[in-house]
Amino acid sequence: MNASSKNIVVLGGGGRTGLLSVEEARRAGHRVTAAVRTPETFPATRSENLRVVRADVRDSDSLDDAIRGQDAVVSAVGPSGRRALGLYSDGARATVTAMQRAGVARYLGITSVGVRHDDPHFSWWYRHLVRPLGRDLYADMSLMEDLVRATDLDWTFVRPTYLQDRPATGAYRVTDNSCPEHGWRITRGDVARFVVEEVARSRWSRRAPSLAE
Results as ranks from 00 to 15, higher is better:
Arg26Cys: 11
Arg26Asn: 15
Arg26Ala: 11
Arg26Leu: 13
His30Thr: 02
Val32Lys: 00
Thr33Gly: 00
Ala34Gly: 03
Ala35Tyr: 01
Ala35Arg: 00
Val36Thr: 10
Val36Gly: 02
Val36Arg: 02
Arg37Lys: 12
Thr38Ser: 14
Thr38His: 15
Glu40Met: 01
Thr41Asn: 04
Thr41Ala: 06
Pro43Trp: 02
Ala44Trp: 05
Ala44Tyr: 07
Thr45Pro: 05
Arg46Lys: 10
Arg46Thr: 06
Ser47Val: 05
Arg51His: 01
Val52Ile: 06
Val53Pro: 00
Val53Asp: 02
Arg54Trp: 00
Arg54Lys: 09
Ala55Gly: 00
Asp59Tyr: 02
Ser60Asp: 07
Asp61Phe: 00
Ala66Asp: 00
Ile67Phe: 01
Arg68Glu: 08
Gly69Met: 07
Gln70Thr: 02
Ala72His: 03
Val73Pro: 06
Val74Cys: 00
Val74Leu: 03
Pro79Asp: 06
Ser80Val: 14
Gly81Arg: 10
Gly81Lys: 10
Arg82Lys: 10
Arg83Ile: 03
Ala84His: 07
Ala84Ser: 11
Ala84Glu: 02
Gly86Val: 14
Tyr88Gln: 12
Ser89Asn: 14
Ser89Gln: 15
Asp90Glu: 14
Gly91Leu: 09
Gly91Ser: 10
Gly91Lys: 11
Gly91Trp: 09
Arg93Ile: 12
Ala94Phe: 12
Thr95Asn: 09
Thr95Pro: 07
Thr97Lys: 15
Met99Thr: 13
Gln100Asn: 13
Gln100Phe: 09
Gln100Pro: 11
Arg101Lys: 12
Arg101Val: 11
Ala102Phe: 04
Ala102Gln: 04
Gly103His: 03
Val104Pro: 05
Val104Arg: 07
Arg106Cys: 05
Tyr107Cys: 06
Tyr107His: 13
Tyr107Pro: 08
Gly109Tyr: 10
Gly109Thr: 05
Ser112Pro: 04
Ser112Gly: 13
Val113Asn: 12
Arg116Pro: 07
His117Met: 03
His117Leu: 08
Asp118Trp: 03
Asp119Met: 01
Asp119Asn: 08
Pro120Gln: 04
Pro120Glu: 03
His121Pro: 01
His121Asp: 02
Ser123Gly: 05
Trp124Thr: 13
Trp124Pro: 03
Tyr126Thr: 02
Arg127Thr: 06
Arg127Ile: 02
Leu129Cys: 06
Leu129Gly: 04
Arg131Asp: 02
Arg131Val: 02
Pro132Arg: 09
Pro132Gly: 05
Leu133Asn: 04
Arg135Ala: 13
Asp136Asn: 12
Ala139Gly: 12
Asp140Gly: 12
Ser142Arg: 15
Leu143Glu: 14
Leu143His: 13
Leu143Tyr: 13
Met144Thr: 12
Met144Ala: 13
Asp146Asn: 12
Leu147Lys: 08
Leu147Glu: 09
Leu147Phe: 09
Arg149Trp: 08
Thr151Pro: 06
Asp152Pro: 04
Asp152Tyr: 05
